[in-house]
Design a protein around this nucleic acid. Sequence first.
DNA 1: CTAACGATTCGCT
DNA 2: GCGAATCGTTAGT
Length: 199
Amino acid sequence: MQPLPLSYYQNDDVVFLAKDLLGKKLCTNINGQFTSGIITETEAYCGRNDKACHANNGKRTKRTEIMFQEGGKAYVYLCYGIHNLFNVTSNVNGLADAILVRAIQPVDGIEIMLERRNKSKLDKTLSSGPGTLSQALGIDRNFYGLDLTGHDIWIENSTTKIAHSEIVESTRIGVDYAGEDALRPWRFYIKNSIWVSKL
DNA sequence: CTAACGATTCGCT
DNA sequence: GCGAATCGTTAGT
């Protein structure tokens, strides 16, 4: 399967993309260790008029800079001093949109992921949460700015097609500081999946 | 330079 | 269910 092309990420509708990414396969290849999982939960962050977004209203800092570049890159940042959170950037140069991937269903390299997570058996705690899925896939801040059409990290279509009726929407997690923008229904996950951070 | 804080997780009660 | 862990980023002095 081919990585999704650059054009896929240039879409100006970040909410559409957040939903469309559900069911697709997120893959990493680190020193020959191939791991992947089906994206089961996402959140949309828009660079305009969304106080939950780090790059809201043109807030350019060293950290947010990558979101202003053309879409299709990895935005990884450290949260609570402990966790690496992985986002897909989208839209065209100058418009800072991103999709946070919050959970995956493990597919390839499960033994490798268990080892990275210091776990012995496979259950939802392996990769259902934005910090834990990054650890399972080996994503850290070295991935900041990496091209998602390259060979280290990429996203590809899978045989799993998610019908619109199979998508549950809710408010985003942990963004209470965003005031009324915290009420936007911009979190999406696959109905009936156990690979979700929180019901 | 300093201080406050976070798009979370884990372990303990 | 609750609180600690833990450090880079950010904005302000």
